[in-house]
Amino acid sequence: MTEDGLYFRFNELKQATDVKKKYGDEVLVVAGGTIATQLITRFGLRPKVILSLENLPLNYVKFSKTGIEIGATTTISKLLTFDNLPNALVQAAQGVHGLTLKEMATVGGNIFSPSPGGDLATALLALNADLVLARSGGKRVVSLSKFYKNFLTYNMRKDEILYAIKISRVPKLSAFMKLTPYTYSGPTICSAAVGMDLTDKKITRIAIGVGGLTPHPYRAAAAEKILKDKPISDQIIENATAKVTEGIQIREEGFYSVEYKSKVAQALVKKILYRLAGFN
């Protein structure tokens, strides 16, 4: 264990949550390092305490009758070694930029990663995932759909650490797609994921996650409302995709206008819905 000055690295969760309790917002939590390190190197953050989670036993995926639990420090590479994960999650993981980033980046870190990262969070939104947050003396569960407040601002207390991600009821159908400037993965211009159950061609369950348009991904609630409990058809997909960005303040950045991003989001959701429905 390295513990020297302001850099902590522990083997037990309790030690980590105790540090978080003691130092609160003065702690920068680092898992894979791909986002947290940039807060230091590019944005000039000088945290009083750096808390590395690398030695905590959170690099796991567990399957049970009640669903799937993914430890927060599970790397993307490790995630991709498991069978039976929902398609949306696998496709989002495969799209992470290159071998090196796949080896470094963690599922938990991806939850905190703002656009143009955070593809796994987009997929996990569509899978209705919950976050298990640990603190000294307890844990609580927060729905991922209620986790994001604003850019790098989360529904999280200052003494908490993301412990695990849970998918309680895995949808029967799910898929993820994204648009990037490169052929082989890359930063996200826009991403979308859908989790859906179809019973006798009726949509009995639907969740749509959209990434790249806002600081963190969001659930396309207006589109979901149109689809829920309706028979799937060309027309209802058209109606729903038109609502994918309704009420959303899209961030304009670089070469991509608000209008362009909105159209891409609609096109991706439409494409996924068509594929999941088995339409040509």
């Binding site: 020297d4 791909t34 390190t37 590395s52 930029h97 071998l99 090196t100």
Partner: peptide, 28 residues
């Protein structure tokens, strides 16, 4: 400096890692 170009890649315990996104304490 943001994990996109790979020019700073090293192998850490046999796995590739961007040294620009790795804190020094991590390699202990």
């Amino acid at each position: 400096g943001q994990g996109a170009c790979g020019a700073c890649t090293v192998l850490l315990n046999g796995k590739p890692r961007y040294s620009c996104l790795t804190l020094a304490g991590y390699v202990d």
